[in-house]
Nucleic acid binder design. Structure first.
Length: 465
RNA sequence: GGCACCAUAGCCAAGCGGUAAGGCAGAGGUCUGCAAAACCUUCAUCCCCGGUUCGAUUCCGGGUGGUGCCUCCA
């Protein structure tokens, strides 16, 4: 599989450190609120990468952190008159609720910064010992950017260019404006941990270094996140980690593009961010997932209600193909036909095309194109009774593709209300009697109840609209 | 100023040297009591100008028009 490595600025063959095992780390949410659609993109994209790697037979050790201590949590706790752990606990729970609705699989590990403070302190101590960090007199500890020669290698910035644009916050005690905090001395009323530099808490960047290296090792395979994390977050992670260990940190850096809202950048400062929780009130989040996968992950995408509606309709196509295949499997015909043989021969071709797309830097847009081609072939194929073998081959590919893309993963065993079923029965009777007026009336009634009726060869089917 | 990115049909979006995937919307048709769903058919020479090449949407140069990072942010 080829993967675009931000560090190399090109696609590279993904070769894991340990054959058969992929160790990957994705920067997770700061849990001070529900997460927004912009957060959702990396979660969905790299969940899909993880699913595909597992489909390919890798054992994937997937770590995604929760940042559960920082200014935003402290502010939230203060404004609510509650505590930081209470805020964190609440939004971690809500993270899982939204993630589940987006069919994002649970990570192998979800480390929390507050559970790794000991390791963070140890890492800071190492940096100080090695001359890469220094304690300021206010209890802060800063990383000395100019002590690490490779600084800027991920983002392609030179230290001198950065220097000219840097600002110095007068409340900080840096020796160099480029330096950044790896440990923050506690201010009055803030949560703190005891450390060799007094009471304080971890800086943001150091958390990810400490957690990723502790869980995945000093060198691991993939580190991923949103494009906006390239600088400074990931640049700083590299500096801290490699300065401390003297070894390469992550081997492949993957970054997803932005989401715009109605053609406008979504950002905290603009205040136009859209919570996944709110989108879920109007749309099936699986449609949102499909929408997110319908463009290549490195390209920017624009989010609008119209586009999600399109995705929702497209998702319906896939659902229909799945249902039609299920129906056909319920009553296979005995002897294989030439059509069966032809279809059976075509299935591996679809699979190969799908894998080819995914192998090419996770080209989910292309892969979806293959999937829709396949769905059409399935729909055409099952318009007549077919042999078991061909149907099962279709079923396996359909399941594999859905599993990799994380579509149609929600349990569908929904029950229709009794009244609806009774109306459907009545309609069957009046249709037999060719009472079309009453039949149409019932169809309207069902529509008002939220169901559509589709008359097929084997009777009518109810569908939730 | 430094570092990157993008420009493909009404909308969204792949492709990136050999003559334009897929989805949504639209048109015609098959099926249907009528619909719906499904299927079939149909719907683009790829921002502009140069260059390289037998051949360019695809490579190079120059424009034009957008965007991002360099500051908390996925």
């Amino acid at each position: 599989m080829q993967v675009y490595n931000t560090m190399a600025r090109k696609k590279e063959e993904l070769v894991p450190l340990t054959p058969g095992v992929i160790r990957m780390y994705v920067c997770g949410p700061t849990v001070y609120n529900f997460f927004h659609i912009g957060n959702a993109r990396p979660f969905v994209v790299f969940d899909t990468l993880r699913r595909y790697l597992e489909y390919r037979g890798y054992k994937v050790i997937f770590a995604q952190n929760f940042t559960d201590i920082d200014d935003k949590l402290i502010n939230r706790a203060n404004s609510e008159g509650t505590t930081v752990p209470e805020v964190a606990e609440r939004y971690i729970k809500e993270y899982y609720a939204d993630a589940d609705a987006l069919s994002i699989e649970r990570a192998t590990v979800n480390p929390r910064a507050t559970e790794h403070v000991g390791e963070i302190i140890a890492l800071v101590e190492t940096l100080i010992e090695r001359g890469h960090a220094y304690a300021a007199d206010n209890g802060d500890v800063y990383f000395s950017v100019r002590s690490f020669p490779g600084y800027g290698k991920l983002s392609g910035q030179s230290v001198d260019d950065l220097e000219s644009g840097a600002r110095i916050d007068p409340t900080e005690h840096k020796r160099d404006p480029l330096d950044f905090a790896v440990w923050k001395g506690a201010k009055r009323g803030e949560p703190y941990w005891e450390s060799p530099w007094g009471k304080g808490r971890p800086g943001w960047h150091i958390e990810c270094s400490a957690m990723s290296m502790n869980i995945l090792g000093e060198t691991f395979d993939i580190h991923a996140g949103g494009q906006d994390l390239v600088f400074p977050h990931h640049e700083n992670e590299i500096a801290q980690s490699e300065a401390a260990t003297g070894k390469p940190f992550a081997r492949y850096w993957m970054h997803n593009g932005y989401i715009n809202i109605n053609n406008e950048k979504m950002s905290k400062s603009l205040g136009n961010f859209l919570l996944v929780r709110d989108i879920a009130k109007e749309f099936d989040l699986e449609a949102v997932r499909l929408f997110l996968l319908s463009a290549h992950y490195r390209n920017p995408v624009n989010f609008s209600r119209e586009l999600v509606e399109q995705a929702q309709t497209a998702l319906g196509r896939i659902k229909t193909a799945r249902e039609r295949l299920d129906d056909a499997m319920g009553k296979p015909v005995g002897a294989p036909t030439p059509e069966d043989a032809a279809f059976l021969a075509a299935v591996p071709e679809f699979r190969a095309r799908f894998e080819g797309a995914m192998d090419d830097d996770l080209n989910t847009a292309d892969a979806l194109g293959v999937f829709f081609d396949f769905a059409r072939a399935v729909n055409a194929f099952v318009s007549e009774p077919r042999g078991k073998e061909a149907l099962e081959a279709a079923d396996r590919l359909m399941k594999d593709v859905c599993e990799v893309l994380g579509l149609l993963q929600h349990a569908s065993g929904e029950e229709f209300p009794k009244e609806a079923l009774a109306l459907l029965e009545e309609r069957k009777a009046v249709r037999a009697a060719k009472n079309w007026a009453r039949a149409d009336e019932i169809r309207e009634q069902l529509k008002a109840m939220g169901f559509s009726v589709e008359d097929g060869k084997d009777g009518a089917k109810l569908k939730r609209i």
